[in-house]
Simulated scan of single mutants.
Amino acid sequence: MPDSLFTDLLRDTEQLRWDPTDQVRKRGRRRTRRTRIAALAGVVAMVVVVTGAVALAGGRDGAPTPIMPATGSPTPTPAPSATPNPQASPAPSTTPVAPPSSPPSTSGRPPTGSTNPAIPAAAMLRLSDLPAGFTMTEGDVDGDWSLESVSIYCRDAPSWTSRGALTQRTVSFDSPTDSVIQRVVRYSGGNAARAMDGVRAAFTDCVPHRESSSLSVLADGLGAGDESLLVGSDIEGVRSRWLVVRQGDLVAQVTLDMDTTPAEARQRARPVAQRLCAGTDAC
């Protein structure tokens, strides 16, 4: 006797009309295609949201980062064995060891050959080194005040001033009746001594374009620093004086009054040399 389940199934399906096989296959392919399209649309929407958030976080001009397709599943890292090996030596300690601390510096001046060529403020003249009534200003000073400015009046302009120069610092002092400008330059190697020789050569060998102009070394060896000079120029009736002092790898040039004598320059050179010791260990 037929099973009741099959009898019920035959009764329910006896009047059904079955579609041809090719139509059933087409409907199946359409359903599969719609499923894939829906899934792709969801991925695209997620990419738009993520890249939009990245653009907002990076600013109005932020460009979305392209998402590269995966090239394969990541390889799992094997877990280490939990069974201890009695023959193995103990693992070294992973506690970091702090490097030995350097001894504290006992001086504010950089050592010879230091990687930091900066010139400290203590190496410059201060208000206490000048008569009362001056004010001080830090920073470069415009105008034709330096030794280099007079080289244009020579037929053969020297180029000694910038050879081996690493860095410089400038300070100016002003009073109602006077002005003093100091520039200190740090040189590499033996270029500081060569710069001093260049000053001597420029103010001794200069051949002016006009006979009414002249450059000269007014005093050499003022008893301050490693070397010290007083040089002057007379350019068509306009006189200028400079004090030049070297201490180690530092060379200072200081503008002086146009009537400064060698004796007065000697007095002015001493505080300049003493201040330079704060910027070099050559003292």
Rank of each mutant, 00 (worst) to 15 (best):
S149W: 10
S151Y: 13
I152H: 05
D156F: 03
D156M: 06
D156L: 11
W160V: 08
S162N: 10
G164V: 00
G164D: 05
A165S: 03
T167W: 00
Q168P: 01
T170P: 14
T170N: 13
V171N: 00
P176Y: 04
P176S: 08
Q182H: 02
R183Q: 15
V184E: 04
R186C: 09
S188D: 15
G189C: 10
N191R: 14
A192C: 03
M196N: 08
V199M: 07
A201Q: 15
A202P: 14
F203S: 05
F203T: 07
T204Q: 06
T204H: 04
T204V: 02
P208V: 03
H209E: 01
R210Q: 05
S212E: 10
L215S: 05
V217T: 04
L218E: 15
D220K: 07
D220H: 05
D220W: 05
G221N: 07
L222T: 00
L222P: 02
G223W: 02
A224Q: 14
A224N: 05
E227P: 00
S228T: 14
L229D: 02
L230G: 09
S233K: 09
S233G: 10
D234Y: 02
E236C: 03
V238K: 14
V238W: 10
L243D: 08
V245N: 02
Q247M: 11
D249H: 11
L256F: 07
D257K: 12
D257L: 08
M258N: 13
D259Q: 14
A263V: 14
A263D: 15
E264W: 07
R268N: 08
A269Q: 03
